[in-house]
Nucleic acid binder design. Structure first.
Lengths: 220, 220
DNA sequence: AAATATTTTTAGATTTGTCTAAATTTTATT
DNA sequence: AATAAAATTTAGACAAATCTAAAAATATTT
């Protein structure tokens, strides 16, 4: 089946929200998509008629298997293109998202497959997010947010869940990137901020906001 | 200025036609774009209002400087992507056109510039067509069609003007590609077909149709 | 459980790009 | 130069994706 750019964007938005909440509601999706509730309802009807969605009026909605597969397809393309932009075109990792938002809608399946091979079938994109394979399978790793890490334990940054330019600029400032080794020294009760030691840097303090978006795994 | 995919496609179509005829007329563009004359008129009004077009009702039209620059921008992107698809993703050269038709509308200027550098600032795409630089300058080479080449003279294929899958499959059959060395042995008056010798192949006969689309330059 | 607030949907408009059919203008032919 | 033919434009319609404002359904509060 073939979808418009707009349909694909809605599908992605629903996928994103239903991972947190199960059932998604209209206003939440309108906020996510930066649009109005009425526009969402219009699109829901279309996606339901295309059999991508479980949807009863006023009851909430979620993607069915076909919908999820479509979402994973688009996410796969997005993350492969991001990988290409950073690894080969030498873009900074905080600049690639909007470009990948366009590239992800290029339709050729053969293009995606060849791009995947060209890139060496990577498992994670430059933000540390897993890249689904062509069947929609997602690699998993054990990770937890910096906020939940025990004190004094050396961990390695594996992904960053907030990919806004603002957030990623902040991480650059702290010299934090994927693969960076970090130890949490102290947690401040007052505002949940953390004193951390980034390898080769002096200790510094990060806000709880930052900490909860930085995911890490054990340093082996 | 920013343009829609549809606007960019019309601009490309006009550019293509005006290189042959100077002034373009509505029906010709409708044929080129696979659409109806009425749709063309609608778009002409829009392009005129965006100051890309010299256009008087019923009198024909052509791109002004801004329009030409826009066309060259899109053509540049198209040919750079084609180069990427063939050189790095190992696509056959007769499969890349429809994919580049999509990629050429990705808007990021930085993307194009980085892609250009990544590819080594190529001057010609996989069909031998010149790639405009970022200022819209097009490299030129002396070439003539195989139909006009003197007999017994060794020449090298530099470009192929008809890029249909049908044409390119035919060239594959003859083992003709960019850089292939050819000598014309004989011209048949009856139908204008040519007996040619492709380097490392036995002599064969190609139709006038094929010959006029294959461009060559002197083999040095 | 009635009143109020919130959420969601519908109704009707708007924009972009397209179309058909009719009207208009230009070109060609007798 | 009048008429026929061809090319072009206009008028009006439609689909996709969006919007605002109003109506309907659901949820919350007193």
């Amino acid at each position: 089946m073939n979808f418009t750019t707009s349909e694909e964007n809605y599908i992605k938005g629903i996928f994103h929200l239903q991972q947190e909440t199960g059932l998604v509601n209209t206003n939440a999706l309108a906020a996510e998509m930066n649009t109005r509730a009425a526009s969402v309802t219009d699109m829901l009807k279309k996606l339901k008629s295309k059999k991508l969605l479980q949807y009863e009026k006023y009851k909430g909605f979620k993607l069915n298997e076909a919908g999820k597969k479509t979402a994973l397809d688009v996410i796969r393309k997005h993350r492969l293109w991001e990988f290409f932009l950073v690894a080969h075109l030498k873009f900074d990792w905080d600049k690639v998202h909007p470009i990948a938002e366009e590239l992800e809608h290029i339709s050729s399946e053969e293009l995606v497959q060849r791009l995947d091979n060209f890139l060496g079938n990577p498992s994670f994109d430059p933000h540390g997010d897993p890249i689904p394979d062509k069947h929609g399978r997602i690699p998993v790793i054990n990770q937890l947010s910096l906020r939940e890490v025990p004190l004094k334990k050396a961990v390695t940054v594996s992904s960053v869940s907030n990919q806004s330019v603002q957030m990623l600029e902040m991480l650059k400032h702290y010299h934090i990137a994927l693969g960076t080794q970090i130890t949490v020294i102290k947690r401040f009760e007052f505002d949940g901020s953390l004193e951390i030691k980034v390898l080769k840097q002096s200790p510094c303090i990060i806000s709880e906001q930052v900490a909860k978006n930085v995911f890490v795994h054990d340093t082996q």
